[in-house]
Amino acid sequence: MSIRFEKVDYEYSPNTPFAFQALKEIDLELSLGKITAIIGATGSGKTTMVQHLNALLLPTAGKVTVQDFEIEANKRFTQVKALRQKVGLVFQFAEYQLFEETLIKDVAFGPKNFGVAEHEAEEIAKSCLRTVGIDELDYEKSPLELSGGQKRRVAIAGILAMSPEILVLDEPTAGLDPQGAKQMMDLFKKLNSEKKITILIVTHNMEHVLDYCDEVVVLDHGKVLMQTDINTFFENDEYMEKANINPPSIIRLKNLLKKNGISISKDVVTIDGMVKELTKRLKK
């Protein structure tokens, strides 16, 4: 069971002067149960790629397999609804999709579309709003009364309410304050470890990649540049250079120390860990 891309091409507006090939022969296999980061420069095809996972875009060539679902180019895909319930996709700036009068109704919208009874859907909505940390007093408020960060959480609750097995997040923390962003990432980690939800995150934040993800996929101009686990990625300067990213500050510090003859074990990836390690050495 996995998510697989086989020679997937995607072209926007084919056969027009605006034609643009966003994905070129994507070959990729992602195992379930992990948190995978998808990184790459703006316009490298990250958003286009993740939209294939719940058949919002259909490949113009190749094949996408998500568990039992097979989405092939030039073939009608008939199980759209079933797939979309399995794969929850949270868009960039998801707060713009809220439309109902109250938070509860908005979050219950998803499950109701998938045939859950009204009352039950509201129960699900309540528990999802609790999961994302919205205060119970706000449940009957209009989405317009909330702050941007809160709206984003409600939108994510709206996706969680469909109880997806795979959660795809397109820059979920863009535009949030560092505190809010951290809370959100902690939430995803919790969903992954407690509910065994497979998580794919499109992000530009390398600190988040280092702190929360298990695996990283780097896209470049519509192609997969590399796919590797987090430790290998951040241990090799040439990898980061090839992917053209700025390493997180803790990695930079580690590399600087290494240059000056102090090598730190690769298990140390947090500031706390680093402080402990350094004090231990200083005491010696």
Partner: peptide, 16 residues
């Protein structure tokens, strides 16, 4: 573009 994005976002929530 915006309409396209919102349509897709709602389609992800099961709108048909």
């Amino acid at each position: 573009e915006e309409a396209d994005r919102i349509l897709k976002a709602q389609a992800s929530r099961g709108v048909d």
